[in-house]
């Protein structure tokens, strides 16, 4: 029971940071989603020890371990778009797949190249 209380309090803290991120987004007129701003803020607060990791740990771990639960209602919404995938929709799958493999190759090659270069410099 104590753990459940902790999870709820921690999620409430995360929610406040999310609202703060939203506020920054509107105040500065940014395109970056408020939730992502909130994530960066929490990372900075944790790294600078302004927020102790024990204040959010249980809630954050519960959310990250069950991340899929939180977007199931949104993915169910695909039922309103079935007709979009009929016909040409298959092409979208191919495009997404092809682009994904390009992301994997380009980011992987780049970081590997930097690593090899650094390793050579150290030798």
């Amino acid at each position: 029971m104590l753990n459940v209380c902790k999870i709820i309090i921690h999620i409430a803290i995360l929610y406040c940071i999310y609202l703060f991120g939203n506020w920054i987004q509107t105040a500065l007129g940014l395109f970056v989603p408020g939730s992502v701003i909130g994530m960066v803020i929490l990372f900075i607060l944790l790294s600078t020890n302004l927020i102790k990791v024990s204040w959010v740990e249980n809630g954050a771990r519960f959310i990250v371990d069950n991340l899929a639960l939180f977007f199931v209602p949104a993915t169910v919404g695909v039922m309103n778009y079935f007709d979009l995938f009929a016909g040409k929709g298959f092409l979208l799958v191919v495009i997404v797949l092809f682009s994904t493999l390009l992301v994997m190759a380009s980011s992987g090659i780049t970081s590997q190249w930097i690593m090899h270069r650094e390793e050579r410099e150290h030798e």
Partner: peptide
């Protein structure tokens, strides 16, 4: 979505929580 939107509401804090694994 009458009920789904309650879960949806937690998507924001869920993104914020991703700072934890990064930390």
């Amino acid at each position: 979505m009458i009920g789904g939107k309650w879960i949806n509401e937690l998507l924001g804090p869920a993104v914020v929580a991703l700072a934890y694994p990064l930390y």
